[in-house]
Computed example of a mutant assay.
Amino acid sequence: MKKLMLFILFSVLCLAGCASNADKEEPKEKKEQTLKVASLIPPMTDILEIAKPLMKEEGINLEIVVLNDNVQPNNALANKEVDANFFQHVPYMEQFNKNSNADLVAVQPIYHAVYGGYSPKYKSLDDLPDGATVAIANDPTNISRSLALMDKYGLIKLKDDATSTDATEADIVENKRNFKIKKVDLLMLARVYEDTDLTIMTPAYAEPLGLKPNKDALLTEGVESAFAITLVARKDNADSEAIKLLAEKMTGPEVKKFLEEDYKDSALPAF
C-alpha cells in the first residue's frame, strides 16, 4: 500500500510539472501575411505607401506592384498574380469584366480624380478654333466619360439617352465646330498634349505637366461622377480579412489628411 501511495504521488507531481512546462511555452509566432496590390502612378501609389506601415502593424506585409500600363493591373489580378489593384474606376472595371469574362469586384472608392480638359494654346473654350483637335483616352469607358464632358460644356451634342458610362462617337448628333477627336492610349495623353488643341485627362497625367484642374482646366467634371478611383479585388477574395483591413487603412485619417493637404485641388476623398 505504501508503494502504491508513493507511485500515485510521483505520477501527480509529474503531471503537474508537465502542465507547468506547457504553461511556460511561448505561443507560436503568427506567420506574416503578404498582400500584393498592383498600381500605376501617384497619388495611387502614395496612398498605398501610407497604408503600408499601418498594415505592417496588423501583421500584413503590403507589397506594392507598380506596373507600366492600364491593362496589366487587371490581367494580373484576374490571373491571381496579385491580390488587389488600385488604379481604376468602376466603369473601367466592369468593361474589363465584360471583355475578359472576369469576376473583379469593387471593394472601396477612395478618391475622385477631377477629370478636366486642358489646352496648351488657348485660354478659354471660346478660343478653340473650328476643327480643333481634342485628345481623349481610347478605352471605351474613358471615351464615354470624355464625350459626356464635352457635351456638358456644349462642345458637342450627344443623344438624349447617352450617358457618361456608355456614350460612343456614334451618339454624337451635333458637332457644329467640327472638332476632331483623337483617341490615344491613356498613358500617352500627357505626351501628345503639346500637339493638341485640347486634351481631356485625369490630374494624374495633367499634374506632371504642371497643370491643375482648379486653375488650368477649361472644363472639369464634378464629384457627382461615377468614376471614383477604387480599390478592386476578385470575387473570391474581396471579403477576406486582409482586403477588408486594407480598405479600412486606405480610408483612414492618414489618407484623408494626405488628400486634403497634398491633392486638395485634384483628388477629392470619396469616403
Rank of each mutant, 00 (worst) to 15 (best):
I64N: 04
G17K: 01
V65K: 11
A106S: 15
S100M: 13
L54S: 10
A217H: 04
D46G: 09
D151F: 04
A102G: 05
Y92M: 12
S119E: 01
Y205Q: 13
N85A: 08
A242Y: 06
P203I: 01
M250K: 01
K256L: 12
T196A: 13
I200A: 00
E26V: 14
K3R: 11
A106Q: 07
N97K: 02
P203C: 05
K121I: 07
I110F: 09
K159D: 15
P140F: 05
K31Y: 07
Y111S: 07
L209D: 01
A242S: 14
A148G: 08
K98Y: 09
I50C: 08
G154S: 07
A51N: 00
D139Y: 11
N75C: 06
D160P: 03
Y115C: 04
N175W: 02
F96R: 00
G117V: 04
L158A: 05
S266L: 06
D161R: 03
K157I: 05
P73V: 10
E241A: 15
P269T: 10
A19K: 12
A247Y: 05
V232K: 00
V37Y: 02
E174R: 05
M250C: 10
Q72A: 15
R145F: 13
A16D: 10
A162P: 06
K56T: 12
Q108F: 03
D126N: 13
L4S: 14
K123W: 01
I60L: 03
L231E: 05
A228V: 11
V173I: 15
P253C: 10
Q33C: 09
P43M: 05
I64H: 05
Y118K: 01
G17M: 12
E221P: 06
Y205L: 15
P27H: 09
P91V: 03
D262H: 11
N21F: 13
N74F: 14
A233H: 05
R191I: 12
S39Q: 01
D166F: 03
L245E: 11
L245K: 15
A238D: 12
E224A: 13
P42Y: 03
I200N: 00
A228R: 00
L189N: 02
V66I: 15
K28S: 14
T196G: 08
D265H: 09
Y118I: 01
D126I: 02
E207V: 14
D171Q: 00
V37G: 01
L158N: 02
A78R: 07
L245D: 09
T199S: 08
A170F: 10
Y92L: 10
T230K: 07
A19S: 14
G59F: 04
L218K: 02
A51V: 04
K152S: 11
Q72K: 12
I200C: 00
F7R: 09
P73A: 05
P53M: 09
P109T: 08
Q33M: 13
P42Q: 07
K157G: 08
K121R: 08
K244E: 11
L67C: 13
V66R: 14
Q95P: 02
K80C: 10
D69C: 08
M188D: 15
Q72M: 11
F258P: 04
L158E: 02
T45S: 14
N142A: 10
E194V: 06
L198Q: 02
Y92R: 04
N138R: 01
I136N: 00
A148T: 04
K52W: 01
A76P: 08
A226F: 07
K182R: 10
P42S: 13
T163Q: 00
